[in-house]
Design a binder for these strands. Structure first.
Length: 591
RNA sequence: GUCUGCGUAGCUCAGCUGGAUAGAGCACUCGCCUCCUAAGCGAGGGGUCGGAGGUUCGAAUCCUCUCGUAGACGCCA
């Protein structure tokens, strides 16, 4: 559907033309003075210079030539503002069309049919527990993916696990130190390795940090770990078996936690999957003269003339011949091209990696690993900080595990639910949803690039611009619908029912908010800004709650008004429900 | 040192393709349940939009400089 804003702009453009002015001045925007009008056009002010005419006169000409079919008000104010109100009938018509349209009128962008969109997010590593640092990538990536999918893009979310680095070497080294008797370390062993891993996830969670810390203090140990990493990468069978165990144990655990966050990946690819593409890629880069040796390393220059700063070359191989992050990322592009032939790849990564991705993107283009048609996007996000505005840490200074964070928030929610009369199972399930809403909404309501402060009290508060507030509004409407159904009203039929505006100001302001859905959703994808959706949902809830508070809906004596308001309430619920789904939240039935 | 992001109410943030009195939420003060979930609604106080110049009829918004802050700057990811 054409957004209301551009629908309203059309007659204004026409009026500018008719009055003899350039129609490019006819920009209609939301009013910044809601007390005066709903929409405004300031074009007369900017046109004044070109036409050497008082803005007021221009505005007056325009309004005289304006087709006022859509407007209940079109007036010229002081220097030359054109203040506009939409007619209620027009608005109700628009809402009814939205109700009937797929996606409530949101259109699929043109480029959605160009091919798959791969979204690389999550950022998990095997053998390391998910910690709060992984939260943003998961939450933001999941939301962007859901928005893209809703808009009609063919999406593939890839967790892209880190499974091929030093962390495995460290685990092998430590495991060997503790249990040298294991078959994996017996070089003469030729049989099958056990299916069962010799460790659990909680073992790994202890082994890895220990080995990591120990390697920083002991040079020999670190060398051993590096050597073991190399042996693994060369394919030493015993080490490959351990690596396989680590992956199995970790992935099961990661899936469990991502599930609890309602974050799901279509693809569980790993860094190691890209390794097989590296030798050919390196050869290709050398043969075609893209890569050259510099200080012993193999690099591709990516500096461009227009750069205001120096961009270091993209390193393909270290001086010792080893691969690194960039190498794997480029090889992953090759793999993705082969498997999916994507139209676009979106990386949802910590913003501190921006320069690396600039290098990698440029390198991929320059070397034609990806052709120019493939769009590459970097969505950099800021850090989640504690109340001291420093990166989030536990009280003793360690990294907080994501699971612990989720549990803390849930406990807080349960505490607040104490006086609610609910069955235990319901209480638990409801608390899970509220806790998740608190965490995710707290994150997503900020612009991704910004750092934000995680404040458990604020996020779990049911007041203000929080996830729980949105859920509460929905629960209220759900309960209203239940009561309506109990009264014998056919609730399902309400969605097909046309709304007839009743002249209520609060009702109108709900309409005026609903209408923004059509522009908000595509914008939130284009700008990679789920916060735009949060803002929309909050505004809708605020308006609806105001309306709800001051008006009797179900207990209304005027049956036509009652039905329209019930239909409106149900529509608001549906829009909210779709909106929170795009954020990755679910509403409970009661709370 | 170079480059990038950010600096708006006590706190957390919107607004930034220039326009009419700079908006929310939290916190604070006050009011509203015989009435569909008061986990709600409403009212109030609170601002040199970091600072200084400039462009413009008009600047939180654009340009320059400056201060503060976070980060990046080839063999980590």
């Amino acid at each position: 559907m054409e957004p209301l804003l551009s629908k309203l702009e059309a007659p204004v453009k026409e009026a500018f033309k008719k009055a003899g002015y350039d129609e490019s001045y006819a920009k209609v925007t939301l009013s910044n003075r809601p007390d005066l009008c709903e929409y405004q056009c300031n074009g007369a002010l900017s046109a004044a210079k070109q036409y050497h005419k008082a803005p007021f006169m221009i505005a007056d000409d325009v309004v005289k030539n304006l087709d006022k079919a859509y407007f209940s008000k079109a007036e010229v104010v002081k220097p030359g503002f054109i203040n506009l109100d939409v007619s209620e009938e027009g608005l109700a018509l628009f809402i009814n069309e939205m109700k009937k349209s797929e996606r409530f009128g949101v259109e699929t962008p043109e480029d959605a049919s160009r091919g798959k969109v791969i979204i690389d997010y999550g950022g998990a590593n095997v053998a390391k527990p998910l910690h709060v640092g992984h939260l943003r990538s998961a939450v933001i990536g999941e939301s962007i993916k859901r928005i893209a999918s809703y808009l009609g893009y063919d999406i593939v979310g890839d967790v892209h696990l880190g499974d091929w680095g030093l962390q495995i070497g460290l685990i092998i080294t430590e495991l060997k130190a503790r249990h040298p008797e294991l078959v994996y370390f017996d070089d003469s062993y030729t049989g099958e390795y056990p299916e069962e891993a010799p460790f659990t996830m909680s073992d790994l969670e202890e082994i890895y940090p220990y080995a990591n810390a120990y390697s920083k203090e002991h040079e020999d140990y670190k060398k051993q770990a590096q050597e073991n990493t190399r042996l693994l990468q060369e394919g030493k069978p015993g080490y490959l078996a351990i690596w396989k165990h680590v992956i199995d144990v970790s992935v099961a655990d990661l899936k469990r936690i991502y599930d609890s966050l309602d974050v799901h990946f279509e693809l569980w690819k790993k860094e190691s999957d890209a390794q097989k593409y590296i030798p050919d890629m390196v050869k290709y880069l050398k043969d075609n003269g893209y890569a050259h040796e510099d200080q012993g390393a193999l690099v591709v220059d990516v500096q461009e003339e227009t750069d205001t700063k120096t961009i270091p070359p993209c390193m393909i191989l270290k001086s010792n011949g080893a691969t690194l992050y960039n190498t794997t990322d480029l090889a992953t592009m090759i793999e993705r091209r082969k498997l999916f032939d994507p139209a676009r790849i979106i990386y949802v990564v910590d913003k501190r990696q921006e320069l690396y991705f600039t290098q990698v993107f440029r390198c991929a283009r320059k070397t034609k690993i990806l052709d120019e048609k493939v769009k590459l996007n970097f969505v950099g996000f800021g850090t989640m900080n504690g109340k001291d505005n420093k990166p989030f840490k536990t009280r003793d200074g360690g990294v907080l595990r994501l699971e612990a964070l989720i549990k803390d928030v849930k406990d807080k929610v349960l505490e607040k639910m104490q006086d609610r009369d609910m069955e235990t199972a319901d209480r638990e399930a409801t608390a899970d949803r509220i806790a998740l809403a608190a965490i995710k909404y707290g994150d997503l309501s900020n612009q991704p690039v910004k750092d934000y402060i995680f404040d458990i009290d604020r996020f779990t508060s049911f007041e203000g611009n929080t996830g729980p507030y949105i859920l509460y509004t929905m629960v209220r409407i759900k309960s209203l619908m239940e009561k309506a159904a109990a009264e014998g009203i056919d609730v399902d039929a309400l969605s097909g029912m046309d709304i007839k505006a009743t002249g209520n100001a609060q009702e109108k302001s709900v309409y005026l908010t609903l209408v923004k859905w059509i522009e908000t959703i595509p914008a939130s994808f284009e700008e990679f800004a789920p916060n735009r959706i949060c803002q929309f949902l909050y505004e809708l809830c605020e308006n609806y709650n105001g309306f709800y508070h001051d008006n009797k809906i179900l207990t209304n004596d005027d049956s036509s008004q009652k039905m329209t308001w019930l239909a409106l309430s149900l529509f608001v619920l549906k829009v909210l429900d779709q909106g929170i789904d795009l954020l990755g939240l679910k509403a409970p039935d009661r709370m």
